[in-house]
Nucleic acid binder design. Sequence first.
RNA 1: GUCCCCAUCGUCUAGUGGCCUAGGACACCGGCCUCUCACGCCGGUAACAGGGGUUCAAACCCCCUUGGGGACGCCA
Length: 465
Amino acid sequence: MSIVTRFAPSPTGHLHIGGARTAIFSWLLARSEGGRFLLRIEDTDRARSSQEMTDAILDSMRWLGLDWDGEPIFQSDRSEIYNAAIDRMLAEGTAYWCECTPEEVEAMRERARAVGAKPKYDGRCRERGLGPGEGRVVRFKGPLTGKTLYDDLVLGTVAVDNAELDDMILRRPDGSPTYNLAVVVDDNAMGVTHVLRGDDHVNNTPRQILLYRALGFAEPRFGHVPLIHGQDKKKLSKRHGAVSVMEYERAGYLPEALLNYLVRLGWASGDQEIFSREELIALFDTAGFSKSAAAFDQAKLDWLNSHYIQNSAPDRLAPHLGRFLAERGRTGVSLDTLTAIAALYQPRAKTLVEMAEQAEFFVMPDAELEYDEKAVAKFLTPEVKEHLVALRALFATFEPFEARALEAAVQAYLDERELKFKVVAQPIRVAVTGRTFSPGLFETVEVLGRESTLARLDRAIALIG
RNA sequence: GUCCCCAUCGUCUAGUGGCCUAGGACACCGGCCUCUCACGCCGGUAACAGGGGUUCAAACCCCCUUGGGGACGCCA
């Protein structure tokens, strides 16, 4: 039987790092087995769900390269299906009407807590034979004894006493279905064979299995991947900084880097660290899951991002660099220039945002270039003035205006005077970039171009006075 | 509180009874390279939570303790 997996986000927020990871795992499981990967939007909470968030989630999925099969299913237009299932359970005696109010149920929970027991609904309406009525809900008539166990794809055998489970609500007073019921009905209808989700759902699984049985559905395999924690070992949340996929995109991360990082959080294939999309599909295996929670480590993500930046074609990076420079107000840079700059920064930038920050001096008007005070004081000294003047003249006419040729020309100038390159390197660098660090001096000068190089040398010479 | 789950370097992990004086990666610390900053290269520090078993042999199996996480919704 072919595998069918699904990702079922609730459109109440952007695609979260944790959600993205379970989506990646579900996608990989399907793709690695030649199965199908489906999408279901869990928008039954009409008040908190929005079309904007649905679109944003789909955009993030596309950005990561997670393609799904068929059209996404929306729970909001499937209420008849859920109701049919609930009505059937009512008719078959596996569900019942309950008239307890939320306040009464809360009181029951309080009482249970007081005696050190598990807080739960006490089942007082189970045998009352109530029918529909204002304010009434439908509850599942679960088994009171015995154990429910299943073989988890990542955890192994998980068992829970049925006595721990209370009779969950299936239908609210307004007729809408609750999460557990809708999930079971949909997963069954969609033919889902493998459910991969976060660890925080293990407690739901026995309940859902009981529903599968009550409904006479075939049970899928379940796998619960450990949650992603922040540096403090707590469940990842807003206060841990950037947590949505979109934020990482905006922060200048490459999708393949985030994908690679996320997939290694809780999964491994031997010692391999770098995986292409194709390799992942070829190597993915549920045996590679780890059982313990993983802490999100920004430093390692940065390392992967620099790896992918270094290994990308510069012309692929160029448009992205252009975008991030534009955000800094530097527009109208040609694609050729962008490509040349990107190539210089590939080994130097951890993120595209950092690349744009570092490279901004290349594209600012010469008159706007700011000179670092300390750099000027240290390197733009009277002793080097004559050399800057001479080299300015050399740069003014030398052909071709290309890194290696310029380097040879400058070297010849220095040889004649028995000077070391060190004497002029930093002064020229400070003159054309405004600071003490940059890519290779001649590469920088070449990309900057003759006109800007001369204009900046003039400014530097003027600064010496 | 109750239930469920987890437990190897700071972090991500390899390890499925002998190949482990525990391997890799990130980070960190040295060094090399060098026109700066990076890249790269070489080297280093650093872990089987504790205690009992089982076994000729345990990081690997069992139990307990401790620690951590998650869940206890008419949210998903």
